[in-house]
Design a protein around this nucleic acid. Structure first.
Lengths: 211, 211
DNA sequence: CTGAGTTAAACAATTGTTTAATTTAAACGA
DNA sequence: TCGTTTAAATTAAACAATTGTTTAACTCAG
């Protein structure tokens, strides 16, 4: 459960390489070399390459619910809470973007025998809290009732990921210079865009057919 | 340029396996077995495994602009065109979801020496047309001016992909039965949600600070 | 002395690609 | 229709390199 210094170094290197080259594109010897340890140590500590991925995901997907609860119970009106919720989700996902990239890829693969229990549980908790917040807002008359609540999370996270996976394209499009980093862009412009999108969606009233 | 029956069978099998198990997770022998050809035929026809991926992406990312131009030049007001544009993008991306999965993964990998020129060009053309449509709508007073136009495509495609990559989760959440397939859901509910999101965003007026 | 940590070496299996031989099919002139 | 020629298609086998994992010996602090 607890990791010593060497174990967490292995996890960090593995996370980086898995995200860059994929699970199958990364060899345990590569991990060992970059983490500056002997190959056998990976089997010794984690059992196998697959279990190494297990351990990685387990240690990355924890402690999200508490942060989310704080936002929902926190100060401000519904709109403010939506803003805070989006900002939190973007920050969390950006911090763990490498682990999430592995999940995005492997979770849709029926063959891989990795446990996604932690991921799914966290996703489920996350959804329940968001659903609660929005339903309350609807009852208070703040939010529109024509919203597909389960698809709000894909809208938030999907926007981030599509940006992240195509960041080379957007760097060329925006002509990012060295001053403005990807981190800056994510925490300011991208976060604001997603906040705006969700608030717009939650207050959008369907145009009625004239007749 | 043109593919014979055997070559396109190889591409189809490769597309499926690359999407399921990744580029590195797929061996040429696996492709050969499922396509029912000899391993050497892949080198013979395509040169190498990398060039096979090149050829696959080339043949999948073509002919998008014409469809898009038809929508933009077509009938209806700005809102209708936005609806049609979203529907077209979702359909295209859903048809080629396997190829796009490979791109999403590999394009963010700096090491891979695959040519993404076709993909980037198509993405650029796509963006230019969308930007034109929205700017016109803004000048006509139909669309809000507080929209981050480059981030609209990530919102559309990202929502689709995040749904697609987590479809197992959403199947469990919705309790999909056998009647309603993923295809049905994509073409109805998901498309409508994204249309709604974009229309809401494009007509959203920022609340002014009271003071 | 004990047991966890660490190591180089060995293991069999699989990888992408090439080779060299063989089959197939079409084109050819008679 | 005939055998001959030619080039493309197809094959099994071989290639060296790399894969994940295990082993057996060793180090060294407690």
């Amino acid at each position: 459960m607890e990791l010593n210094e060497k174990q967490s170094r292995i996890l960090e290197v593995a996370e980086k390489l898995f995200a860059e080259n994929g699970f199958d594109g990364t060899s345990v010897r590569q991990i060992a070399r970059e983490a500056d340890i002997n190959v056998a140590m990976i089997s010794y500590y984690f059992g196998s390459k697959e279990k190494l991925l297990d351990a990685l995901l387990f240690h990355r997907f924890s402690g999200f619910r508490k942060e989310m609860e704080k936002v929902i119970a926190g100060e401000g009106g519904y709109m403010t809470k939506v803003d805070n919720m989006v900002a939190l989700m973007v920050r969390r996902i950006h911090d763990n973007r490498r682990a999430y990239k592995v999940v995005n890829f492997e979770y849709s693969n029926p063959v891989r025998r990795v446990s996604f229990d932690n991921y799914v549980r966290q996703k489920r908790e996350n959804y329940n809290m968001i659903e609660g917040l929005i339903r309350n807002g609807q009852e208070e008359g703040v939010f529109s009732k024509h919203v597909n609540i389960p698809l709000i999370v894909p809208t938030i996270l999907g926007t981030y990921f599509h940006f992240y996976y195509n960041k080379k394209f957007f760097q060329a499009l925006h002509g990012f210079n060295e001053q403005i980093t990807i981190d800056d862009y994510v925490y300011t412009t991208l976060t604001i865009h997603i906040q705006q999108t969700i608030k717009a969606l939650l207050t959008y009233e369907m145009p009625v057919n004239k007749g």
